[in-house]
Design a protein around this nucleic acid. Sequence first.
DNA 1: CGATTTTGACCGGCGC
DNA 2: GCGCCGGTCAAAATCG
Length: 327
Amino acid sequence: MADWALQAVIRPKQYDDDYFGSIDTKKEYDQALLFCFPHLFDHQASTPSMETVVVGDEVEQLYKPLYPIFGTEIELPPPPPPAGAADADLQVIHHHHHHHDSYHEVQQDQEQADIKTYCGSASKISQLAPKLKKRKNQQKRVVVQVTADGLSSDPWAWRKYGQKPIKGSIYPRSYYRCSSSKGCMARRQVEQSCTDPSIYILTYTAEHNHPQPTRRNSLAGINRNKFKTTPKSPTISDGCKSVPITMDSPFNSPTTPSVSSNDEEVLQQSNIKQETMFYSNFDDQGHTMMTGMNDEDHMVFSDDFFEGLEDLSSYNCSNRQFPHVFS
DNA sequence: CGATTTTGACCGGCGC
DNA sequence: GCGCCGGTCAAAATCG
């Protein structure tokens, strides 16, 4: 299959296709995916093939956050209890909640402390998530995992405004703001997964206050292509050591690498390798609503976010074979 | 020359 | 109060 295609969106393998409980939920999941990666689906109708590339323990890791989501805040039947191994894993997660001895566990701890999760319609989220004063760490956000190809095919125009080494990860996190519109508050963070360097974790916060650019020409002038003849070998510094990177690293030219001359081709290479998406909200009391959150797996949508989704009415969900994503 | 990237400084939240 | 950490700012560098 073409490598731009969505390769996998993860759910517990022991779950049936009705895991999401309702068509609506599936549809909304689709819409969320569409919002972040609408370009993926431009080609979906013609070649909807997808494949799951994650297996075994990795799947379990990615699934963990899903368990409590579908069993708590929403009107979905609780998922069947995970098989023995998964149960054990969940217990381990709880235990680690009190022992911050790795990057993942620190992340889990923070996420578990702060996040309430929901999965449902925008209106449902509105009802369940009363207006909150959004502290920095309470801002709703969307987390997506993509491969380098998927990263490069993000349709929005992003301008980098910072980069920071992240504790516990050898890879720095890059910060971007939307450059399409002056007042747009949309933000994106890009970091490389420390567990799988081929995967990049995109974190979107705030919403765009303007329509999505229809074409990549909105990026005209922002693409500083550094692939061509940079003489020195670039490195990523995390403050402790330097990590050699390849010339197509998103940290080298993270906004739109190699997009300048061939929009169509690059768009077709968008590639969400592993993805978990959640409708979430933060809890002021810090109650743990997600027992299995790991560092890469939560997704939050604001009402505005979904309002934006509604604007994408021209998109026809029926053109896609969503369930296959999870098979 | 305008737009973007780089990078150290700065700031606020949070835990101890 | 202090230090750590993550997020942002802004000046300088870089690119087309």
